[in-house]
Design a protein around this nucleic acid. Structure first.
Lengths: 334, 334
DNA sequence: CTGAAAGCGCTAACAG
DNA sequence: CTGTTAGCGCTTTCAG
C-alpha cells in the first residue's frame, strides 16, 4: 500500500502539498496538481483513514443506535441512514440496544473510543445525563422520536398525537361506534403520544371507558393478547386503533382466529406504515410516517453538524398520512 | 481525554508497561499492575482505537456486506452478526449492496481504507477476481451462501438442495398431485439449488412440465405475479413450492385474492423460516434455515481468522428443517 | 504557492 | 519485569 510519502516523492513535492490537494484546502499550483494526480493514479494511492483520524480527528464514521434491526421500522430507517451516509462518504456502525440502558452505555463508550464523528439515537433508553455528557464532549448527535427534557438538542420526529387523532376519526367516519386502543410502551414518546391522541379523541363519547385500552408492547404477540382481552371485556367493540403496525398485525391475526370478520365486524387501524401492513389480507389501514425521509433528514442534519454547522438545535416534525385500506373499508350508512 | 502517557506518569511507570497491561501480553508485576489499574480508573482512561489501529493495525471492526437490510432474512443475519461481534469486542459496519457490483466495489475500497479487520459477504454480486484480490491482500473474509469457483475460502451455507427436496416431498405427502415452483434469481446459489431440488424431485412424475415453474425474483410482488401466471396456465395446480418465504407470502396473498383456498385447494410451502410466515393467516409451512446460527458461526469464524487462526478453509453446511404449518395441512386420504 | 517538522496516541522491538 | 525509542500515515502550523 502506497503512502502519502511515496506519492510526494514520485510527484516531486512534499507531503504537505499532497495533503492539501487531498483535502482541498490551501492553494496548490495547477501544474503541480496535475503531477500529484498523476502520481496518485500510478501508485493507486488510497489515503489511510486510520492515520487521518489520528491526525485530524475525523473518522468519517457515524453510529446508529436503535433497539433492534430486526424490527422492520428500524430496518427501513437504517437503510435510509446508510444510503445518505454513503452519499456523503460516511460509513455507518450498527448498534442494537434492545432498549437496554447498559448496552447503550457500553456502546457510547466504545463509539467514543473509536472516534465516531456523530451518533444517531433512535433508542428509548437513553438517560438524560447521557445526553448531557454527549453535549459536553461535543460529539454531535441527533435524537429520533425522543426529546429529552432540559438539554437542548435537535430531534426528528413525527406528529404522533395528530396521527392518532386522524386514525380515530377515520374509524369514526367509517361508522365505528366503540373504539378500543392497543397501546405501546408508555415510557416511549411514540407510545405515549399515540395513546393521548386516542384518549383525547374519544373521551367525550358516552361509550368511552378506560377499560377500552390494553397494552401490546409494540409486538405481534402483544397485539394478539390485547385483542383477546379486549374482546372478552367488550364483545361489542367495532373498531381498534393499534399503537403501531406490528401490534395491528397481531390484532388482525387474533381476530381472524377468533372468527371475527375484519373490517365488517371490527375495523382495524395501525400506525407507522411498514410493509407488513400490505402483506397480510386484508391489508391494514395505517397512519404512515415518512420513515425513509426521517432517516434521510436526520442523517443529513447529523452530517451537517459534524461538518461544522452551528445553527440552533431544532425539532423537526414530520407530517403523517392516513392510508385507508381494506381493514377499515366498511359499508357506509347512507 | 487522558492518554496512555498520562496514565504512565500517574502510575510512575512507562507507557510500554501500560500498553502491556492493556493488551495482556508481556509480564507486569502484580504490584505495578495495581498502580496501573488505579491510575486508569482515576483518569478514566480509555484507549484510543484510532491510534491503536494505526500502530498495531487492528481496528476491532468488521464489515457486513449484503443486499439489503430491509429484507427480514438479512436483518436477522445482521442481528446475529452484531450480537457476537459485540461479545468479542468488535464493532460492525453495515453495507447495503443492493446486489450491485459497483456498490460492492466501492465498499471494498472504503473498507480497506478504514482497515476493517475482516469482511462478511452475504451479497450475490461479488466477482471472483474480487475474492482473489481479498485473498492476496490477506484481509480475512467469509462467504455466506456463495462459493466462488476456484479460489479457496471458507463459506457458510445451508443444504438448499436437500431442503427443496424435503419441501416437495412434504407437499406430496400431503396429497398434492401437481406441484409448481416459484423460483428465485438463477444467478444466486440459493435460487439455483432450490430450483434444482424441485426439479430433481418432480421430473420423473407424469404430470411434470417445464411450464410449472415461474420466476418470482425473491420478492413479494414477484410471488404474486408468478401465481397469477401459473394458475392461468395450470388451473389444476394443488401445490406450490416457493423458493423463499417472501415469494411464498406474495403467493398466498394472490391466491387469497383469487379466491383460492389455502391449503385445501392449493398447498403452499416456502423456504427460509423468516417471521413473515407466521404473521399471515394461514401460517405458511417453510423450510427453515438456522439464520441466526449461521450469522453467529460465520462471525465467529471470521473473528477466529482475524485473530490468527490459520486452519484450512472449510465449507460449513447447515441443516435445514421443514416446519409444517397450516398452509399445507390438508385432510389426509386414509 | 510549497516545504520542514512537530505531533495525534499507541504498539513493539530491543535493551536493560 | 520494565523503560527507551522508533515508527504507523496523515494533518497542520510556521516559515519561507
Amino acid at each position: 500500500m502506497a503512502t502519502i510519502r511515496d506519492v510526494a516523492k514520485l510527484a516531486g513535492v512534499s507531503v504537505a502539498t499532497i495533503s492539501r490537494y487531498l483535502n482541498k484546502n490551501g492553494y496548490v499550483n495547477e501544474e503541480t496538481k496535475l503531477r500529484v494526480e498523476q502520481a496518485i493514479k500510478t501508485l493507486q494511492y488510497e489515503p489511510n483513514a486510520m492515520a487521518r483520524g489520528l491526525a485530524g480527528r475525523k473518522t468519517g464514521t457515524i453510529a446508529l443506535i436503535f433497539p433492534d434491526i430486526t424490527n422492520p421500522f428500524f430496518a427501513e430507517l437504517a437503510r435510509a441512514v446508510e444510503d445518505v451516509a454513503r452519499m456523503y462518504g460516511y460509513t455507518v456502525i450498527l448498534c442494537n440496544s434492545d432498549n437496554q440502558a447498559d448496552k447503550e452505555q457500553t456502546y457510547i463508550r466504545v463509539l467514543k473510543q473509536r472516534y465516531v464523528d456523530g451518533i444517531l439515537f433512535a433508542s428509548y433508553s437513553l438517560r438524560s445525563d447521557d445526553v448531557d455528557a454527549l453535549n459536553n464532549e461535543k460529539i454531535p448527535f441527533i435524537m429520533l422520536d425522543r426529546a429529552p427534557r432540559e438539554t437542548s438538542c435537535t430531534v426528528v420526529s413525527s406528529k404522533h398525537l395528530e396521527g392518532a387523532q386522524q386514525a380515530v376519526q377515520h374509524l369514526l367516519d367509517e361508522g365505528c361506534t366503540k373504539i378500543a386502543h392497543i397501546y405501546g410502551p408508555q415510557d416511549t414518546v411514540t407510545g405515549r403520544e399515540r395513546f393521548m391522541g386516542y384518549e383525547q379523541s374519544v373521551k367525550h363519547f358516552p361509550w368511552y371507558s378506560p377499560s377500552l385500552v390494553e397494552p401490546g408492547y409494540f409486538r405481534v404477540d402483544g397485539g394478539m393478547e390485547a385483542v383477546e382481552n379486549l374482546m372478552k371485556r367488550h364483545p361489542d367493540i367495532d373498531g381498534i386503533f393499534a399503537g403501531n403496525d406490528t401490534m395491528a398485525v397481531g390484532a388482525l391475526k387474533k381476530l381472524q382466529r377468533m372468527g371475527v370478520r375484519v373490517p365488517d365486524q371490527v375495523a382495524l387501524c395501525g400506525f407507522d406504515g411498514i410493509d407488513l401492513t400490505v402483506i397480510v389480507e386484508p391489508e391494514i389501514t395505517t397512519v404512515a410516517q415518512s420513515i425513509y425521509d426521517m432517516g434521510m433528514l436526520s442523517t443529513r442534519l447529523l452530517i451537517k453538524k459534524i461538518e461544522g454547522d452551528n445553527s440552533e438545535d431544532q425539532t423537526h416534525l414530520f407530517d403523517v398520512k392516513l392510508i385507508p385500506r381494506e381493514s377499515t373499508r366498511r359499508k357506509r350508512k347512507e
